[in-house]
Amino acid sequence: MPLALETIRLVKRFGGLLAANDVSLAVEHGEIRGLIGPNGAGKTTLVNLVTGVHPPDMGDVKLGGQSLRGCAMHEIARLGLVRSFQVTRLFGNMTVSENLMTSFFARRNRATGDGTKQIGNMLELTRLGPLADTQAKKLSGGQRALLQMACGFMVPGSCYVLDEPFAGINPVIKDAIIDMIVDVNRRHGATFLVVSHEMAIVRRLCRQVTVMMEGRVAAQGTLDEVARLPEVIAGYLGKALE
């Protein structure tokens, strides 16, 4: 069985800055992989390379064994790769329900069933029901993040790339997001690559983590394994665990 998500020697330069320097990553089917590293390490850049926001200068991305070279962003999404943005992006002038419906229409297929029913489920799961007809731009930061996640789950994807889904969110909403991730992972066998600084959550969700520093993959293993490496402690965890 091919890997769910694979990056092969990705290189991306922004002017003089090597934001991705020979990044190779292999995520198995059904795995929830953690991606950690200090700010500016290139985590978001990697997410953007995988999802087609930036074309890589060199290297390739494979989704379920299929190369994504030359694929437009929307084509990658239609192959089942779902992402969330670190800085939450929603359709601000559309209501909560309309945001969910748009995500549904964008990726629906023969098997996806009834969008209205699925919106009902999502509103219940996220407890955003009372806000169903509220414009997304009027929501709080946490509600926005939650809605962005819910949009990604309207049609189950095969692979999720989540960029700091827990940053700046209250614990109740954090738990709601964790529950959604675990649920989609168990029920649909979806694969996850989760960027996060929250070590407690990473420990709970991810058997394996990848550490990025200065555009490179610095280490990989269980969280406890990488936490013991001197270079990881020096470059990242020393600061993160303080």
Binding site: V53, M73, R89, F91, G92
Partner: peptide
């Protein structure tokens, strides 16, 4: 509202 997000959803 947000063309980049629209693309990222598969539109």
């Amino acid at each position: 509202d947000d063309e980049l997000r629209a693309k990222s959803l598969g539109i």
